[in-house]
Design a protein around this nucleic acid. Structure first.
Lengths: 208, 208
DNA sequence: ATAACTACCGACCGTCCGGTCGGTAACATA
DNA sequence: TATGTTACCGACCGGACGGTCGGTAGTTAT
């Protein structure tokens, strides 16, 4: 019967619900996360949480939509304004990677849990992911047409990029050897230039 | 008088249990897969399945161990025999990628579900993964020492490699545009040479 | 002062889960 | 024929899960 604190009035609280839920689901997985886990992390009961959400599935769906919206806002939309495909690719990879390392945006990852959704929800999420993927691959196609790309399949390349970026969330940790910017920068370099030095000439030497 | 002894049952059938369980868990995730799902897929009841397994966790643990053993047998061990680090890296990436695309071995992936295990089991799996990771990074370190690598962090590079390879299981499909060999080959190319053509003597991009 | 609304909670429900237990039918061995 | 052993199954259990419902304090609007 004790009144909890009530500092956050409007639907600022809803945003907090999403943020908290996303973090927990990202860490433990959707199925392993109970509605109670989320409620407790928010300092309320399950019944209280149901004041904000309409169901576990819908919560997941909303979070995914938020993550994809964020990806569009912070990566795809700004990228579309960059004419040069090399600069654009560099921006996409860096901005997306930064979105992942900046914890918050790691939301994107749980797009994997798509199988937990209803077919209708799945369709919407898949369509959204597809749009982003096509944009990414489109940039690679441009690059290829301009003769600036290695001889690799653009589909495989786009997926590989996403693999590298999404995997970041599994190993990157705040306070580690690399900070957010450095980690994103490493991903960009590896993606664009690969691991090996171009060994055209027999030159075996120097560091820069 | 509980007969709580070690299991020494029919090996062929036990292998089938592992294979079937791995496939289902890989597709649906560990938590979303019930023991009943696995039993039904094998054409038996849950109680019948318990004749072969000692628990859901232990089943997962056994499957992970098998996957990691397979990785060691088919990738790490042969790779250790290759002296040249460039050839060795090429082999590791290709062989690991092929293990993933060849469906069966995709078992490796569910190493992600490590949080579902008991702490003791987790320790064993983590140690095993770590060993493989160190071997991979060690090869990159060698490469770097030989002046044959781009200027990137070997830890970030090793994780990026694993990200690309593991992500394969999400998009690669039998009968698609790329077959198993081609997909693995694409991964190798992208990993070793990157996406962009080396800008001949000018440029030096990647500066900030 | 009252009515309406917001932000919660305790108690409860039906379902499904992992896991157990006492069987049993089929076959091998002696 | 008797005795094990293997490979299962039906019935059951305690508990956790997602979800509902009838409240109730506090806030705001009239």
């Amino acid at each position: 019967m004790r009144a909890q604190k009530k500092s956050a009035p409007n639907n600022e609280r809803l945003a907090e619900v999403y943020r908290t839920a996303a973090q927990i689901i990202l860490r433990k997985g959707y199925d392993a996360t109970s509605v109670n886990d989320i409620a407790n992390a928010l300092g309320m009961t399950k019944a209280g949480l149901y004041h904000y959400i309409n169901g576990k599935k819908e919560l997941l769906f909303d979070i995914m939509n938020f993550g994809l919206w964020e990806l569009d806002e912070e990566v795809a939309t700004p990228a579309r304004a960059i004419a040069d495909p090399v600069a654009r690719l560099r921006f996409i990879v860096g901005a997306h990677a930064r979105l992942v390392t900046r914890g918050q945006g790691a939301i994107t990852i749980l797009v994997d849990e798509v199988t937990a959704l209803t077919p209708a929800q799945q369709r919407k999420i898949t369509k959204s992911k597809r749009k982003y993927f096509d944009f990414l691959r489109g940039t690679l196609d441009e690059l290829k047409a301009a003769g600036k790309m290695q001889d690799v399949d653009t589909t495989a390349a786009a997926f590989s990029l996403l693999g590298m970026i999404n995997w970041l969330s599994r190993w990157f940790q705040q306070g580690g050897a690399l900070d957010e910017e450095q980690a994103a920068d490493q991903i960009v370099r590896i993606a664009l230039h690969g691991l090996l030095r171009p060994a055209r000439l027999k030159a075996v030497s120097g560091e820069r």
